[in-house]
Amino acid sequence: MSTTFNRYFGELRKTRIWRSVFRGGTGQSTLRNSMAIQQNVFLHLLPTKVRTRMIDFNATWYLGTLTLGTFGILVITGILLMLYYHPSAPQAYADTKDLQFVVSSGQFLRNLHRWSAHAMVFLVFAHMFRVFYRGAYRPPREFNWVIGVILLLVTLLLSYTGYLLPWDQLAFWAITVGSNIASAVPIMGDKVRFLMLGGHFVNANALLRFYVLHCMILPLAALFFIAIHFWRIRKDGGLYTRHSEPDAVMTTAPAERPL
């Protein structure tokens, strides 16, 4: 079957239409495989070659990849959930109830969105500590580590703003507590809280603001920084391996020093 598939797919790749869409060309050569990465606007963020050692599960535990996966799931399920959701109080709560009991697969999509969000927060933290203990933040990758810290903050803000949207008790009081933390900022705390909530109370205005942040501003920020994060992996010399560093650095690493 796979040969049949390959034959038809090979024929398809030779057609004028396919070749007008994908610039990678046809055939199976190394050049073609490189071009498949280089000539694609999204994939060209990635390196065309990767050290064989780095695709080993133990090298990275695939934590960054899995974080990207959760982000993808969250974008897809999030867009679907938006179709049945009005960001107004108390309609938002009724919509959430409808998603659970009326909309086909609504409960499933909401579950998937919620659990993926939890998984993403966990994976982002795991990725950060893993990168730290591998020493993969060292020059020249220091700025990519900073981008990673920004992405951690964006992830936490995404999950925080998403928390208010069901407009249930948990949402309301978590945001009440959170917005009062903002008002503890010295001098301009009350102003910050006022701008954040769009009023003095956690109310319909706050719900709308959090909705816009959660569905537009923060996902766009996340995409922006994810793109830089990936591109910097390529530009900074691929995924970090200790042995890809020059000997001079390696000899100072205590673990490698003869005892």
């Binding site: 006022f194 701008l195 769009g198 009023g199 003095h200 109370f201 109310n203 319909a204 205005n205």
Partner: peptide, 12 residues
């Protein structure tokens, strides 16, 4: 931006 983000009328 600051003025735009601060609501002038609040239905509170």
């Amino acid at each position: 931006a600051y003025q735009f983000l601060s609501p002038n009328v609040l239905y509170e």
